[in-house]
Design a protein around this nucleic acid. Structure first.
Lengths: 339, 339
DNA sequence: ATGAAAGCGCTAACAT
DNA sequence: ATGTTAGCGCTTTCAT
């Protein structure tokens, strides 16, 4: 069945395509009787304007691209739902660009980006290839990065180092001094969170060396298990454990780590306190409820969408960096060191 | 900066747009020297064909729509990643249609669907409005439903009733007879899983009435908590507990339920055994590791993508229903009733 | 093997 | 207020 087009409507109404177009786009200067008639016809026929044709002549798509890792975690999953909702309320559709782990994926993503005539781009994923950013700045395409920062591009994020320091200080205030960390080497935030960890130790005059942190490949429970096992190995096995607290760069890492600890007969929080990061949805349901750093998900999503919208509609916010407040959420997985 | 188009390339190469088009689309009948020259030019300039123009003339978009609930859970999240990957390997892009809880969202979704000139649609969400299905069958648009079935539409899913029966039988075999269930009223699978629950009880000659199942609004941990509290209330509070096992229609429901049980001082699995459904990623990491029914995620994703691809490319598979095998995964959250 | 020309469905400038 | 017309960037006959 051929879809019906604007000319079909025009013909059936006995008017021109222009008039139909005006009605469809809610323009002024059209007789209200004719408007009604056309609207009725549209309703009856189920006519919907062909988007490709529309995009072509308008040279835009009313669509915003969201660049997100293929393996997006629950934090990102929640974030993009919020962003998608806000964008929709601004009248934009959302097109996802899943970046896979493979190298050429970034390039493929860029090519699709070019072909789409997007109105703007939101990046929830830290692309490595500088060509990507060059293209964005060269074309002047509105962009905002969410949860990380790239020079010259508007960004919405928390202060990662400070947030980590707060998490670690919570542990220190609880009396812990021998603290380990699992982080990842994939993205900037992994290094920033580790940096905050070291800063907190330094400020508390706790001696440390690099071996206190293990860097894993992905921020998933599975890699949390790997990281925890490695840390256990480094510290001479669970029998000779002298450390009493663990900071994980993401909640999912923490969940994996807790799994290993539990299997080893090490109780959380009785034997070891654990802090995560992100405050993903399930953090408050699992046993033990996870103490974690909460990023203001809703606000990040809102501000990201709004900042992009402002850029698209001309308010020049390009390059602004917005740091939103994080919050330490103390739950059951941490407690005072009993000694 | 204006994006460059096919004419720019043609002019720079001193050839016609037709030739460039042939090269871009890998057609025969073009001098290999000229082909090289054009390819080089494309490389240098970073030219990418305008998708809207291409879609318009071709009357298709090489894009598949995926209809998915706005609040998609982790199971769906994993599923759609797999589907997206496969579709991409077939040369199709993916466009997401998030259906929100509000009523008019389904209609809005249908309108967008119409405007997009999609090559096919995959539904991971059970749309209620019959107009939706009418449109699909009227246009002959390839469609596959995944994880549920609608008459006349190709479907890939497990046998929900049987899977539930298996889960409940596992509890029964462990000696449990007083078993409760949390399900949802939102979608068909919620009713099917409850149906399987009742069937298993009947088969084991365990008397039951409807009050053994509580139906909650969403399949989330939060609603798992509500459901568990309601069940506790119905059975006279945690003090007078006589039931010993719980079947939750999704793992997320189970996680919320376990949270409430833990808060009430009821231990899992020592006091109460819990079975979930879906085998979401974290099910094997949480404490206790969740016994659950695993849907063959990878295979469902593969078959869904493949079935749609076959429909698009003419192999007539329309209306086929494919039932894939589920598997009971026994972990730590269930154990034999000790009495 | 290549180019000229038509046309996809739509919007907007222009004319009336 | 409404219709006519041109043109968006591309593919595809149809000539040559």
């Amino acid at each position: 069945m051929r879809d019906i087009n604007i000319k079909d409507i025009a013909r059936q109404a006995g008017m021109s395509a222009s008039t139909v177009s005006r009605v469809v786009n809610g323009k002024k200067h059209v007789n209200s009787e004719k408007r009604e008639q056309i609207l009725k016809l549209i309703e009856e026929t189920g006519y919907v304007p062909n988007k490709a044709a529309r995009n072509m002549v308008l040279k835009r798509s009313f669509t915003v691209g969201i660049v997100i890792p293929d393996t997006f975690n629950m934090f990102q999953r929640q974030l993009f739902s919020i962003i998608e909702r806000h964008l929709e309320s601004f009248g934009y559709h959302t097109l996802f660009f899943f970046v896979k782990f493979e190298d050429q994926s970034e390039e493929a993503c860029l090519n699709r980006l070019k072909a789409e005539k997007l109105d703007g781009v939101i990046m929830l994923h830290e692309i490595k290839n500088p060509v990507f950013y060059e293209y964005l700045s060269k074309t002047g395409l509105p962009v905002v990065t969410s949860t990380f920062h790239y020079p010259g591009i508007s960004a919405i994020h928390v202060n990662e180092e400070q947030a980590s320091r707060d998490a670690v200080n919570h542990l220190i205030n609880l009396g812990h001094r021998n603290i380990l960390m699992i982080s990842g080497d994939g993205f900037t935030f992994g290094r920033q969170r580790a940096e905050g960890f070291f800063q907190a130790l330094t400020e508390a005059d706790i001696p440390w060396d690099e071996s206190r942190v293990v860097y894993v490949r992905h921020y998933t429970p599975e890699f949390g298990m790997y990281g925890m096992r490695e840390l256990l190995l480094r510290s001479g096995g669970s029998g000779k454990r002298t450390w009493t607290a663990l900071f994980a760069a993401t909640d999912e890492l923490a969940i994996g780590a807790i799994r290993v600890l539990t299997d080893e007969g090490i109780r959380v929080p009785e034997d070891v306190s654990v802090v995560g990061f992100d405050d993903i949805d399930i953090a408050k349901y699992i046993v033990p409820q996870l103490t974690t750093v909460s990023q203001p998900l809703t606000e990040i999503g809102e501000r990201t969408a709004l900042t992009l919208y402002r850029q698209i509609t001309g308010g020049n916010t390009k390059g602004d960096e917005m740091i939103l407040p994080h919050k330490l959420i103390i739950r059951e997985s941490t407690r005072a060191l009993n000694r």
